[in-house]
Design a protein around this nucleic acid. Sequence first.
DNA 1: GGTAGGATTACG
DNA 2: GTAATCCTACCT
Length: 201
Amino acid sequence: MELVILPEWFDRSAVTIAPELIGCTLVRQLPDGQQLRGIIVETEAYQEGDPACHAYRKQTKRNQVMFGDPGYVYVYLIYGMYHCVNVVTDKAGAPSAVLIRALELDRDTLVSIPRKPSEKPVKVAAGPGKLCRAMQIDLDLYGTKLDLGQALWLEHRSTDWQHKLDGGSIKLTQTTRIGLTQGVDLPWRWYVTDCHAVSKW
DNA sequence: GGTAGGATTACG
DNA sequence: GTAATCCTACCT
């Protein structure tokens, strides 16, 4: 299998893809060529018929990328100060996305990220806002294609990680989503069980 | 044209 | 508990 995840892989429902993205690697390539890498440990799915989905009502300038082809980046500003990054899923006309909520940062990436001395390294990318700050993701990446050589792309699970999942030493937990006022009962959040890098419990 | 509130986080 | 901070949706 190709290492880099191709756009066609995202042409499925968000609820199918969200748990499959756990264990995959998010790669951020900066303009200077430096790469920041982290393994996804927490995701949430948002799709049609879901009142919490930003595309639930109608197409707007903000959510329009969700209405388009899969495999593109949906970034939005929340609470005026934080960014959240999503992967657009499913075919054009079926607006949906997977929110990436937490990463286990690659060791080299970790040392390259500026942070307060008091801040525990593992908490740097725990939470969608902090994750975007650590990976330097902002609205400039809105509508970017997820592909090798772009600002952002995804890579499949390593065989080692997959074996750990198959063998039961890594487990996934499925539960309800966080921070919502609508659609609170939909169990569309997944994370690595007992992972210390997951945002909230 | 005005405004309430949000897929968050940090700090008291 | 609540401030920070801004874009969007949803009024009028």
